[in-house]
């Protein structure tokens, strides 16, 4: 399912002293089945952009097409509810959206809101809980007895239970330790391989390099770049102008190349890099 933005503008609190122009003429086409990173500064418009994909926000002008659904400024909100299911949005620190007595109830909350029968929703709940790496014994536990990382898995399971075609994640690994972050990203990669489109807002360029196919760079409410991961990290000057760091491995290669090494800077893998360095010594 492809996602297309055409000349999308978004202005918060239009015609008030607090008005803020958050999206400026955004044109975008995200391929079905891709895993795309959305990067840029805090305040560059990333959150505003992703909230348009499941129609939490409507554009001030311009149009957005999610498969066969067209979103414009004049859409009636009711007609857009199916989009919430089609595009699952996981906010930052999603553990704060848990509220039910048991994990099972919390996970089936979303599916039930979209009219899925309770018995069917429970089957789905078991499936997604396993997918996020927790076993069935957790179903009847209270979500508030879990550790921070486990709560987050349950919250994500609650979105996955709606079986969205597009999964949008706003900094899903913020605050997790390295191991927790790695497991989380492997989960998303697995979901991506099963055919779903994934959009991840991230500040961690190592993650972007390792897990994503494409990168969208936002700055000042505009989409400035939309390229493959290999291409984007070649633009070192542009990225540093936005004070976006390079991935550790890329910046390491560039440092070596400054001193006479000739290493391909698109190497993503440590073992491959080691071989390459060894070959040049």
């Amino acid at each position: 399912m492809s996602i297309t933005f055409k000349k999308v503008e978004h202005v918060y609190s239009e015609n008030t002293p607090f008005s803020y122009h958050a999206l400026k003429g955004v044109d975008l086409n995200i391929k079905t089945g891709s895993m795309t990173a959305l990067i840029g500064h805090t305040g560059s418009g990333k959150s505003t952009l992703i909230q348009h994909i499941n129609a939490l926000l409507l554009p001030t002008s311009g149009e957005i097409q999610i498969e066969d659904v067209m979103i414009t400024a004049t859409n009636k909100p009711e007609s857009l509810k199916p989009l919430r299911k089609k595009a699952g949005l996981v906010f930052q620190f999603p553990e704060y959206q848990l509220f039910e007595e048991t994990i099972l109830k919390d996970i089936i909350f979303g599916p039930k809101n979209f009219g899925i029968e309770e018995s069917e929703a429970e089957i789905i709940a078991k499936k997604v809980l396993k997918l996020v790496g927790l076993d069935e014994s957790y179903l009847e536990k209270s979500p508030f007895d879990l550790s921070g990382g486990q709560k987050r898995r349950v919250a994500i399971a609650g979105i996955l239970a709606m079986d969205p075609d597009i999964l949008i994640l706003d900094e899903p690994t913020a605050g997790l330790d390295p191991q927790g972050a790695k497991e989380m990203l492997n989960l998303f990669k697995k979901i991506n391989r099963s055919g779903k489109t994934i959009i991840i807002v991230s500040h961690d360029m190592n993650q972007v390099l390792e897990y994503c196919d494409d990168v969208i760079v936002m700055s000042n409410g505009k989409v400035e770049r939309h390229e493959s991961v290999d291409e984007i990290f070649k633009e070192t000057e542009y990225l540093s102008s936005l004070s976006i760091d390079l991935p550790t491995i890329t910046s390491f290669i560039l440092q070596l190349n400054k001193h006479g090494f000739k290493i391909d800077s698109s190497i993503k893998d440590v073992d491959q890099l080691v071989k390459e360095i060894g070959g040049q010594l």
Partner: peptide, 15 residues
Amino acid sequence: LSLDVPFAYKISEGL
């Protein structure tokens, strides 16, 4: 202990 290993360590050990 589910901790990462420093990047420089990975490279120098590999070499």
